[in-house]
C-alpha cells in the first residue's frame, strides 16, 4: 500500500513535466503547426520517391513511409529526452528543477512520458495525412506486431536518449552538439529509407549496434508482410534486451554526470 502511494506520488510529480511541456506547446501553437505541416510535407516528399509515373510502386511507398514515420517518432523521442537538460539550461530553469525534492528517476520519467506522448501524437497525425493521400493498403499489415515493435524500440531509444542527455551536463555546448551528431549517425546507418545491405561494409557493422536497425526491420516485416510476433521474435528480443540494459545504464550514467556537474559547477544556467 505504501509502495502504491509512493509510486502514485512520483507519477504526479512526473506529470509536472508533461503538463509544463504541453503548456509550452500551447503557448507556441503557431510554431507547432508550422513544424507539423513541415513534417507532413517532408514525409510526403519522401513517399513520392517510391511512386512510379504509372502509379505503381505502392510497396516502395509503404517501405519509405514506414521508415519516415518510425524515424519521426524515434527521433522525437530521442531528441526530447536528449535535449531535456540543455533546454532547461537555455530557459534558465535547470537549477530550480534540479533542486526540487524529486528523484532524478521521476524527473526523467516525466521527460520520457512527454516525449512518448508528443512523438505518438505527431506520428499519428502524419500517418493519417500520408495514408489518406496515398490511399495505402494496410490490409495485410499486422498492426499488433507493429505496435509491440514501437513500444519495445521506445525503451531502447529512451535508454540511448538518457545517455545522450548527460552530454550537456558535462559540456554545456559541445554536449548538445554531440547528441545531434549521434542522432545523425543513427539515421545514416539504421536503414531508415534504404536497406542496410546497400551500405559500405564498415557502416553495416555500425548498423548492428543501432536499435533503430532492428526496429525498422521488424516494423517493415509486420506492416508490409504481416509478420507475427513469432516471426520477428529475434528483433523483439534484441530491442527488449537493449531497453532493459540501456535504461538503467542511462540512469546510472546520468546520475554520475550530475555529480560531476555538481562538483565542477556546471549545473547552472550558463554552463
Amino acid at each position: 500500500m505504501v509502495l502504491v502511494l509512493e509510486i502514485n506520488k512520483e507519477l504526479r510529480r512526473s506529470y509536472a513535466l508533461v503538463e509544463r511541456n504541453f503548456n509550452l506547446i500551447k503557448r507556441y501553437l503557431g510554431w507547432e503547426v508550422v513544424f507539423m505541416v513541415y513534417t507532413v510535407v517532408n514525409t510526403l516528399t519522401i513517399a513520392f520517391i517510391g511512386l512510379s509515373p504509372d502509379g505503381s510502386g505502392q510497396d516502395k511507398v509503404l517501405y519509405l513511409v514506414v521508415g519516415a514515420l518510425l524515424w519521426g517518432f524515434l527521433s522525437v523521442l530521442f531528441h526530447e529526452v536528449a535535449e531535456s537538460v540543455q533546454w532547461e539550461r537555455w530557459e534558465g530553469t535547470i537549477e530550480y528543477s534540479f533542486m526540487a525534492p524529486m528523484r532524478r528517476l521521476t524527473y526523467l520519467g516525466g521527460v520520457c512520458l512527454f516525449a512518448a506522448a508528443y512523438g505518438a501524437i505527431r506520428t499519428v497525425i502524419v500517418m493519417f495525412a500520408v495514408v489518406g493521400i496515398f490511399n495505402l493498403d494496410l490490409s495485410s499489415a499486422n498492426l499488433l506486431s507493429g505496435l509491440i515493435v514501437l513500444l519495445l524500440s521506445s525503451l531502447s531509444f529512451i535508454g540511448v536518449g538518457l545517455m545522450a542527455a548527460t552530454l550537456p551536463l558535462m559540456s554545456a555546448e559541445k554536449g548538445s552538439q554531440a547528441a545531434h551528431i549521434l542522432e545523425a549517425a543513427i539515421l545514416l546507418v539504421s536503414g531508415v529509407y534504404y536497406d542496410v545491405s546497400v551500405l559500405p561494409a564498415w557502416m553495416q557493422n555500425l548498423s548492428l549496434i543501432s536499435p533503430a536497425t532492428y526496429t525498422l526491420r521488424a516494423a517493415r516485416a509486420a506492416l508490409l508482410r504481416g509478420a507475427s510476433l513469432h516471426d520477428i521474435r529475434s528483433e523483439l528480443l534484441i530491442l527488449l534486451a537493449t531497453g532493459v540494459i540501456l535504461i538503467p545504464l542511462g540512469l546510472l550514467v546520468f546520475n554520475r554526470a550530475e555529480l560531476y556537474a555538481m562538483r565542477t559547477g556546471k549545473l547552472k544556467r550558463s554552463g
Binding site: R13, R20, R27, Y96
Partner: peptide, 16 residues
C-alpha cells in the same frame, strides 16, 4: 519558463 504564465509556472512548482 518565460513563455508560460505566472500561474503555469507556479503550477509546475506545485507539482514538482
Amino acid at each position: 519558463f518565460k513563455g508560460l504564465s505566472a500561474m503555469e509556472n507556479l503550477s509546475y512548482t506545485a507539482r514538482l
